[in-house]
Design a protein around this nucleic acid. Structure first.
Lengths: 335, 335
DNA sequence: CTGAAAGCGCTAACAT
DNA sequence: ATGTTAGCGCTTTCAG
């Protein structure tokens, strides 16, 4: 598949020679520009087909400076939450003719930085990033050079940029308030490490709910640093075996929810459960539970649109933090 | 952040002028080429820092023709299976200094074609694709032009290319054989549409198991076209209510498995269950089940390495189809 | 070890 | 409506 000049792929020059027209005419046809004689367009199209010409998008954007791509830096490719955000963002971008390319730091701060800079070198128009790093000042030069950044799910550090977060605090508050309103005197709270942004927010929300009733949470019922379902299970089993066991549990993420469920099901304990984050197959849990749910697709679409508005200059307001609202919903099998 | 000439970003020319060296020297420093005087390199590095110079990777590859990127065209971004494959492929590629960019057809054949061609125009070195389209002849020109394609999970149609598939037939055969060996006389089989490649394979495997024992499956226990968990649930409920209900079920994908589980749990029926595909939280199912599992990461890594070998020319053998082996594993909560 | 010049494939500005 | 000429930012000869 060498080109007529003997090189690699055929280029516009080859097509022009083949069709007996100028380079520019080929360019016009390829780009669907107006004011091209139909007969000529026909001839060019025939040559393109015959030579198997394919436009080199990189060369095109080099001269035009067009930036028709945005990057999505996920923190974890196999996290469905982020990927649903990415899918929604891709769809929203496509509506404006912009492609989204996905990369992932896999929760590695150095990888995040490398990937991000790499995407910038690839001349993406902007970035959606789920931050893993604890310092994002390295993005400031890029932002200043006109590559806007929008953070997702977690705030960026050391840089002013748009952020789209879940209403972690409000969601947790509502979940715990509901348990308290149902008459539960002893509500346990299972959390991962408080150094994680979402955890400290959700913890604060849970405490808000107690405070709103003028009550204080029993500190022995608040368990932190539960990284895995197994840890959450063990923690809840310990609480259930203790003197005055909880009658309800609020789990601050779906890993804890899963672990708590294991404990509850294994002990067949009459404990009400509400968990932050819906999860796949939550409908399959063999007893009614509640989860704090939110519109993932909307989050992604809003973030993408904001980024595109920044890129196009349509939005020159101060960067802001937006919270995606949450709602409490029923899950689990009803009997 | 305008460059010293008043344009946009600073370029190598600006750096060269600033450092008082030639363009080529800057290029050498930026690319870490050997044979550069350390003092000069130092000066150039200082200018790069001061001007905030960032290399334009697109321009670089235009001249060199370098192809340091491969594309992954998923069929569904929110399918964890594909994303785990993508993550493994990305890691394997990175070991050779190649970046992976992810796009998704979202099960739309036209989108697959658009995305694929778009990636080619972006000069990716090769493609990993989970095919959605029913005809991949459109890829032939690309392949001929030196952009190899490797298909994942499903075979490509109308084009000879490497394929990495799950051992669907063998896995299904083993699953059903095990149920039969355990003494189950009546084993139901729940499937999605037989037009789907994996479904016809898994169906064939299930029937193999019966045939190996000289037995024939009861056609009334084989239900097809179950697209959703709800459909699978309804189908199994019907079977359980019928005259001679099954004592075991083989579900050909995890959606059916979920539906079947709902039916079994709701009826508290003593039915053994084996499902193809592991699923998130399968450990949480409140009774022991078996699943046909496979090493997703290995599949992705092998596919990526094969693609890279094709690109580099290290592998010029005939394209082949490889099957990823499966194994039967325990899931669900033990009591 | 360093530099000048040419050119990758395309688009933009200016003719015609 | 079409063609001509630069030139995007970089790498690559090929000379010094």
């Amino acid at each position: 598949m060498r080109n007529p000049r003997g090189g690699g792929h055929p280029t516009m020059v080859d097509v022009a020679a083949d069709a007996g027209v100028s380079l520019k005419t080929v360019s016009r046809v390829v780009n669907g520009a107006p004011n091209v004689d139909p007969a000529m367009a026909e001839r060019v199209a025939a040559s393109i087909d015959r030579l198997g010409y394919q436009r080199n998008a990189l060369a095109a954007s080099l001269r035009s400076g067009a930036r028709d791509t945005i990057g999505f830096v996920s923190a974890d490719l196999s996290n469905t939450f982020y990927m649903r955000v990415a899918a929604a963002a891709a769809a929203a971008a496509l509506e404006r003719g912009i492609r989204l390319i996905v990369a992932s730091s896999e929760e590695d701060a150095a990888a995040e930085r490398t990937l991000t800079l790499d995407l910038c070198q690839r001349q993406v128009g902007g970035l959606l990033v789920v931050p893993t790093a604890s310092d994002h000042r390295y993005l400031a030069p890029e932002a200043a050079r006109g590559t806007p950044v929008v953070f997702l799910d977690r705030p960026g550090r050391g840089i002013v940029a748009d952020e789209f977060l879940i209403d972690n605090r409000g969601g947790a508050r509502a979940a715990v308030a509901e348990l308290l309103a149902a008459g539960h005197e002893r509500v346990a709270v299972l959390l991962d490490a408080p150094t994680i942004f979402t955890m400290s927010e959700r913890r604060a929300g849970a405490l808000d709910a107690f405070a709103a009733l003028g009550r204080a949470a029993d500190p022995r019922l608040i368990v932190e640093d539960l990284h895995t379902p197994a840890a959450a299970r063990a923690a809840l089993e310990r609480l259930l075996d203790a003197e005055r066991p909880p009658t309800a549990v609020f789990c601050a993420n779906n890993r804890s929810t899963v672990g708590a469920l294991e404990a509850i099901l294994a002990a067949d304990a009459p404990v009400a459960l509400t968990g932050f984050d819906d999860f796949e197959l939550s409908g399959l849990v063999p007893r009614p539970i509640r989860v704090v749910d939110y519109d993932v697709a909307e989050l992604g679409a809003r973030a993408a649109r904001t980024l595109l508005d920044r890129i196009s200059g349509a939005d020159e307001t101060e960067p802001r933090t937006r919270l995606q609202p949450t709602r409490l919903v029923d899950r689990g099998l009803r009997r």
